[in-house]
Design a protein around this nucleic acid. Structure first.
Lengths: 348, 348
DNA sequence: CATCGCTATGATACCGATAACACGGAGGAA
DNA sequence: TTCCTCCGTGTTATCGGTATCATAGCGATG
């Protein structure tokens, strides 16, 4: 016979036909042993099972999915895996999905929506059963593509008015508002907000809005927002630099509210080096509740965000949708303000 | 005509046949427009492209892979995503793979080899072109399965004698040895090694061996290794508890070498609370070079491991193998000892 | 003992794409 | 002008499974 392996055979192991031949049955019976074992006589079932074992047969799910109409795949796109927050969300998601036998395919977009769009396009070719995105900011092309395709989409890490499909997030606006208010209640007067670039990022924009509204409600004219342009890596040094820049430009500043604990921790360390008293001479608050904030001294006041939980809820929403159960399409999870040592406590 | 959509059609969007019909050509021509555009007249190509646009066609890669013999998928299994180390490795891997157009499918095994085996089995059904594993410890079933299947496998985070296929790692033994030696050179006398459970974990075992051999080379009888059994979450508290337990049982201890920065940082904080002078009364060293170690005070002496780099190299080895290029199958990357403030410097 | 009905297995078609080969028409050489 | 190429497109078979329907063999029934 002709050598079978010269063809670019996908598999390495045996095919279902080979197993069938060895067991002296047809493919169909082998298929039944896998999908509906009760429909096959124990005797044949045993022969087939043995044939599968001796050939080391592993079913080819590509072929199966092609007819069955379900791939058992869910795709997720995060800005980066190197940020524990997004990794947490993925872990929560993977956790829930794996119990339902769904596999997760992951891409990282490097915070770029154009990259995200091309990844979406490429991922759709694999016919995932759902897609999880980070944030609400996407290219128009991506939105159109997804709306047209009609597959379940969950956007995470934010809440907003026009989701593509489902959303699970928390309000960055409310969270920034709450933290700003907390600082005001602690008696800080000149609170500067240090944000990342917001052109492309709904989260950053919303946090800025929350800060501004809290300031105005307190009857304060907010000082200009300081924006750090972190190219790629998010580093504590960036926070230290921001601290210096702000204190030079606005010497009366008595509190800084950073959009990330990473920056805030950098600022705390810089203060210690420079001999600036935290929280008395200056208060420092962060965002995200990272481990570094618990470890730095003084410990960092911050906003805890439900990273893992968002992943879990996203997974549950997907499962609900896939099984046709009723379920909410927008879920707003809570955050919490963690008052620690880097700011004075509110004097209520 | 009969409604087409009642069938469990995988896709949502159009199929290639529909695009073909709209453009007035056959599927084959549409396929050519995608794979070998130069073989199609500009005129037809334009018609087909337009038809793809108006139908919102997204090719079905399952079908394509089935004939083409390549899925463009790589699978990776990590113990958990919540540990920045493994997330870093994945990011490096994804980075390299995505440039080659390969997608990454990720599972987390919760540090359990039995879970890993079943995940391998399930992932193989998707016919990935390569598999990346964490560590060298796997069930015999998993090893057999993979050897038999003959697909490229890269094991990471360790080096050892009998890899399934390829390995890219560093020597946990040498790293622990080097750190122990560093502590000895700094004049610490009674160095206790605090390890995680090693029954199931080659990394833990190798680190213990490195520690023991360094102690013996220095002519010391090593005190018993303290083992923490972290159920699930790896927390600083565990390190604090270990510190207390060790000091109670072995009061003469003057240095602790932890198998993870997380534990070490917990111990540093506990010392500060208890008023124990670090690094003079007691030296504390960690492993992994996490961010928390840079932020804690005193800053943590630790072993830097090439997490991201392992991912990148694993990706490169896979690409080399897939393209048939010659390439090494075992790669040992370097680590480095970061001498910081939580231990006295070596008095070399 | 003939008929009915059920059950275990087989035969056929199809999922959505691609490789390999077939074929018809335009253009060049003789 | 006629024959030969070559090029663009269509036809057919196939990848590895699964749904659907057909059928053979068996026991139960009257």
């Amino acid at each position: 016979m002709v050598d079978n392996d010269k063809t670019g055979r996908l598999g390495f192991g045996a095919t279902m036909a080979e197993v069938a031949a060895l067991a002296g049955v047809t493919k169909m019976t082998v298929s039944r042993v896998l999908r509906h074992p009760e429909k096959v006589t124990p005797a044949t079932r045993a022969r087939v099972t043995e044939a599968m074992a001796t050939t080391g047969y592993v079913p080819n799910r590509l072929a199966g999915s092609l007819t069955a109409g379900a791939t058992g795949l869910v795709a997720a796109i995060v800005p980066t895996l190197r940020h524990s927050l997004f990794a947490d969300t993925l872990e929560g998601l993977a956790d829930v999905l794996s119990e339902a036998g769904l596999d997760l395919i992951v891409s990282s977009s490097a915070y770029r929506t154009d990259v995200e769009e091309s990844q979406i396009r490429s991922l759709l070719e694999r016919r995932p059963e759902a897609l999880v995105l980070t944030g609400l900011t996407h290219t128009p092309g991506a939105r159109d593509l997804l709306r047209g395709f009609g597959l379940p989409v969950v956007e995470t890490w934010e809440t907003g008015d026009e989701p593509i499909d489902m959303v699970v997030g928390y309000s960055n606006r409310k969270a920034a508002h709450a933290m700003t208010r907390q600082l005001l209640l602690a008696g800080y007067e000149n609170i500067v907000f240090v944000n990342g670039p917001s052109e492309n990022n709904e989260r950053a924009r919303h946090r800025a809005e929350g800060y501004l509204s809290a300031m105005r409600e307190a009857g304060k004219e907010p000082p200009p927002i300081h924006v750090v342009h972190d190219e790629g890596a998010i580093l504590p040094e960036t926070g230290a630099n921001a601290l210096r820049a702000v204190r030079k430009k606005l010497p009366e500043t008595d509190a800084l509210f950073f959009t990330s604990d990473v920056f805030a921790v950098g600022a705390v360390l810089a203060c210690r080096e420079a001999g600036i008293a935290v929280p008395d001479a200056i208060g420092i608050a962060g965002f995200h509740d990272l481990e570094i904030g618990r470890v730095v001294s003084p410990t960092l006041t911050t906003v805890h965000v439900p990273a893992l939980e968002m992943g879990r809820r996203a997974g549950e929403m997907i499962l609900a949708r896939l099984s046709g159960r009723r379920h909410g399409a927008r879920e707003e999870l809570g955050f919490s303000i963690l008052q620690r040592a880097s700011t004075r406590p509110p004097t209520k």
